[in-house]
Amino acid sequence: MTDATRVPLLSMRGISKRFGGVEALAGVDLDVHRHEVVALVGDNGAGKSTLAKMVAGVLTPDTGLVEIEGVPVSIPTPAAAHALGVATVFQDLALCDNLDVTSNLFLGRELRDARGVRDDERMEQVARQILRDLTSRIPSVRVPLAHLSAGQRQSVAIARTLIGSPRIVVLDEPTAALSVAQTAEVLMHIEGLRDLGLGVVLISHNMTDVRSVADRIEVLRHGRNNGSFDARTTGYERILGAITGAVRADLGVPPVAAAS
């Protein structure tokens, strides 16, 4: 293994965040490598979404170090996250119902032509290309989001991550509102992201989804790391134990070596 592959794509160390009197995160560590899908699991309020929002530039940690490819970074805004190559799909689908598919894909990062004018034609071409790559069933890139089904909207949300060739993709509950077939499609897409060499952080409640697509499972509990497991070899019971607190990470479950 060369140095370049051993340095994690994303490395978070000792991340803490308080909201008033509530300690959302207390010294959490997280590493994501290239070609890796890391599942972030935990009960409600464990701090998964808080952590995701820090990577996405929506929240900033109180303390802790964030490195991208070994370079310490701060991510103060979503635009900064995008500039660093981080793309995020949020749980509460950050889409505008009143805008069409292309507008949503490029929202906040519209393409401009040489004169600095919005380049609708090129955006539409790219949008069509990306949706074709995803083999999504969107009738037209000019349809307003309000006219799409939940699954189609999720496709648009995921397609957004492919705009501007990111390095890290964070997916917050991407399958929560989807049918079985749509879920399968999303999971296939996640595997596609891994094959492209991206690092993927997948936040999910659904153990079946997590175990079918993730390489590594990181458990959060009450804002702390509570175990790191190899997704292929670890049993369902053990992960559930870590989530619920029946098994404590510091009492005998050895963390699995990160790189796989």
Partner: peptide
Amino acid sequence: RSVFGRHIYAIGGNLNAAQLSGV
């Protein structure tokens, strides 16, 4: 036809989404 115009529509349509998208 402008980016500014589209961002007005985005903010009015879904403030949260606009913010998260970097508008």
